[in-house]
C-alpha cells in the first residue's frame, strides 16, 4: 500500500476540537496521479482531514505523510495547491491582483503566462480586470480554483470545489482534473455530490471521522449490492453504524499496540 508512490499516507489520524472528535483514527492512502474522493455527510471530518494534509492543523495521533514528508514541510515546498470550501479571495482586489499576489507567495516566475493559462482553464480570462467583489459566487469559486492551480502543484487539495458551479462548468472542471491526474498530479477532493464521486479513481466513504469503506465507485456499488453509488453509500453507512461498539474496541486495541 505505502511506498514512494503514495502522495498522501494517513495512518490512524486523530484530531479533536474540544469535546468534538473530528477524526477518530482515519486511515487513507492516496496514490500519485490518483483522484481520491472523500465522500461523506456534513461534519464527517472531510474538511478537517484536508486541512491536516494542507498543514493547517496538527493531528493529535497517528501519522500523516504528504509527498514523502510531514504535512507542514510539504506545504513549505510549494508543491501543494489548496482550494478552500469558501472562495478565500481579497474582494477589494481584481482577479489579476489576487492571482499575482498568490503567484508571488508561490514563487512563480512566468506570472503573466501562468495567470492567462489558469484563467483560461476556469473560463474567466475576460474577467481578469474585474474586482472580485463584483463577481458571482460561482465565478469566485472558479478564481479560487485558478489560484490553487497557479503553481502547477503536484498535489491538489480541493474542498468541495464545485459548490455553486453550474453543471456545464462542473463537467469542465472535472475534465480538467482528469487531465491533471493524467499528467501525474494527485488530487484529493471532498464532495457530497454522488455524480462527482463517480468520477474519482478511488473513494473513501467517511463518517464520524473514520473511513467506513474504500474502493472504486464500481467496487463500492458491488460490495453494497445496490443499484447506484448513493444507495451504496447509505447502505454502507448503515451497516457500519450498527457494529459501532466493535469499531471502538478495534481502535482501543490499536492504542494499546502503539
Amino acid at each position: 500500500m505505502s511506498g514512494p508512490e503514495a502522495a498522501v499516507e494517513a495512518r490512524d489520524v486523530r484530531k479533536r476540537f474540544g469535546a468534538v472528535e473530528a477524526l477518530r483514527g482515519l486511515t487513507v492512502t492516496v496514490h500519485t496521479g490518483q483522484i481520491y474522493g472523500l465522500l461523506g455527510p456534513n461534519g464527517s471530518g472531510k474538511t478537517t482531514f484536508i486541512r491536516a494534509v494542507a498543514g493547517l492543523l496538527r493531528p493529535e495521533g497517528g501519522t500523516l505523510t504528504v509527498l514523502g514528508r510531514g504535512a507542514r514541510e510539504a506545504v513549505g515546498t510549494g508543491r501543494i495547491g489548496y482550494m478552500t470550501q469558501a472562495a478565500a479571495l481579497y474582494v477589494e482586489l481584481s482577479v489579476d491582483e489576487n492571482l499575482r499576489f498568490f503567484a508571488a507567495l508561490l514563487g512563480i516566475h512566468d506570472v503573466d503566462r501562468r495567470i492567462e493559462e489558469v484563467l483560461r482553464t476556469v473560463d474567466l480570462l475576460d474577467r481578469r480586470r474585474s474586482v472580485v467583489g463584483t463577481l458571482s459566487g460561482g465565478m469566485r469559486q472558479r478564481i479560487s480554483l485558478a489560484t490553487a492551480l497557479l503553481h502547477d502543484p503536484r498535489l491538489l487539495l480541493l474542498d468541495e470545489p464545485t459548490v455553486g458551479v453550474d453543471p456545464a462548468l462542473r463537467r469542465a472542471f472535472w475534465d480538467h482534473f482528469r487531465a491533471l491526474a493524467q499528467r501525474g498530479v494527485t488530487i484529493l477532493v471532498s464532495s457530497h455530490v454522488m455524480d462527482e464521486a463517480a468520477r474519482c479513481d478511488r473513494l473513501g466513504l467517511i463518517r464520524d471521522g473514520r473511513v467506513l469503506a474504500e474502493g472504486s465507485a464500481a467496487a463500492l456499488v458491488a460490495r453494497a449490492g445496490t443499484a447506484d453509488l448513493e444507495s451504496a453509500f447509505l447502505a454502507l453507512s448503515e451497516s457500519a453504524a450498527a457494529p459501532a461498539a466493535k469499531g471502538s474496541a478495534r481502535s482501543a486495541t490499536a492504542e494499546r499496540n502503539r
Binding site: R51, L56, I80, Y82, A86, A88, Y90, L105
Partner: peptide, 13 residues
Amino acid sequence: TTGTLERLLATPL
C-alpha cells in the same frame, strides 16, 4: 474570518 489567512498559511509564506 474570510479564510484568506488559512489560504496563505497553506502556501510557503
